[in-house]
Design a protein around this nucleic acid. Structure first.
Lengths: 231, 231
DNA sequence: AGTATTAATGAGTCAGTTTCATTATCGTCA
DNA sequence: TGACGATAATGAAACTGACTCATTAATACT
């Protein structure tokens, strides 16, 4: 606390603001988030926030940038601990789905913001770096002969991110946790539609995966029941 | 112009506001859209808008409701002119993709709003009706034996809407028009991953399917329980 | 025409973001 | 150490834009 240089203090304060802002944004959504509340939680005056971020929008961008960066780091780490090829793909899928379920509010805001300021290349960079984790994994599957090279990567990418994002959104509306099934299903789709030896029969989503998924869902339902029973 | 009843005039004015609002929202995005501008374009005073829609949010809802309804009508009409089964699926896909490309701004706002007010059943109804067009077409494909019945509809739905929405968004960022490719690709995915004659190991899934159904039923029961417990 | 009911107006309120003149803190050097 | 310039923080006030409401206009009804 004592021996910190001015620069360190400033960095620390910027971090405090970002953390406070993230909380406030997630709790209230962008529109309902109050700059005054962000300042209060960061323990500074309202005007001070504007020394660090030039507007509410810029603040959200900064929060999202950090979020994407964390996501990228986590994904790279998780993926590299797996054997190359399809297992890595499944691992990334699982990771992405988990993050989506956990932080869907932030991601919705990202889409909202994307709408506002797409075109600014700087703002999209963090997202692009995250997306490239998938690109790498997918290309490696192709290189290993596990997936067909007949399709451009962007198609698989749209399928991958699009399906999961939409699932996460509807899951939330329906109030059910079914990420395991989503992952199993999407993995099946990748394996059947993009399989390298296209002459063979597609393999169906296997029984164990689905049993897994069903039990996850049941567990979730029961857990909700228990939780609500305590009030 | 002369012989109109009061009711007709009011309806007309409501329509004017909705059209003006839609334009303003699409041109500026939700945050940058000004109620004053909507009023100006509709040729009325600012306060008058609030006689028809109780808030800016309500106005956006109304715009989206009309949008979904138009979409639904168009989709039903287009689909019914096709031969049942996969051709209808392809037709709906094409239709949805075209609408997405054209009106992606509105759809982004829909996601934003969904975020704000999800939970209100009334607001989601128009969207739900549109989605059910897909459900019907997909179930018919299953009934005709063109697609497998191994999978719940919601999985196919997430794949369908998720992929296309994401594609439309990225297409716009990249500034390329490739909807035809997206449709062809997604259709291929449906045909290979959901093909009915996955005759290799369908029986082994039977038990899991039934477990699935049990879980669905349980889930419903528990949810009812939770709902009633809150009153 | 007279009156009641419904519709429209737009100046004003209010909540929330952003600015900026002022004040405090820090690092440096005599 | 103390004085000085540079950097950081403050919070009251300006600004912006959604929303209200007392007042006025239009319409229907007798």
């Amino acid at each position: 606390m004592t021996g910190r240089t001015r620069r360190e203090k400033v960095d620390q304060r910027e971090g405090d603001i970002l953390i406070a802002a993230r909380d406030v944004f997630v709790e209230n959504g962008y529109d309902q988030a109050r700059m005054a509340e962000v300042a209060r939680r960061a323990g500074i005056a309202e005007g001070t926030v504007y020394l660090y971020f030039k507007s509410k929008n810029a603040l959200l961008f900064a929060v999202l940038a950090r979020f994407w960066d964390d996501l990228t780091a986590g994904a790279r780490a998780g993926v590299e601990a797996e054997t190359p090829g399809l297992p890595r793909l499944r691992c990334l899928m699982q990771y992405h789905m988990d993050c989506l379920s956990r932080d869907i509010e932030l991601l919705q805001m990202a889409a909202h913001v994307q709408n506002l300021l797409y075109g600014d290349p700087e703002t999209q960079d963090h997202l692009r770096r995250y997306v490239s984790v998938f690109d790498d994994v997918f290309r490696q599957c192709q290189a290993l002969g596990q997936l067909s090279t007949d399709f451009p990567v962007w198609m698989a990418r749209d399928l991958f991110f699009g399906t999961m994002e939409y699932s996460a959104r509807t899951m939330r509306v329906r109030g059910v946790e079914q990420s395991a099934m989503v992952v199993a299903h999407l993995m099946m789709v990748f394996e059947t539609s993009y399989r390298a030896d296209a002459g063979e029969h597609p393999q169906s989503l296997n029984g164990v995966d689905r049993l897994d998924a069903v039990s996850d869902r049941l567990e979730e339902v029961v857990r909700q029941l228990l939780r609500s029973g305590q009030h």
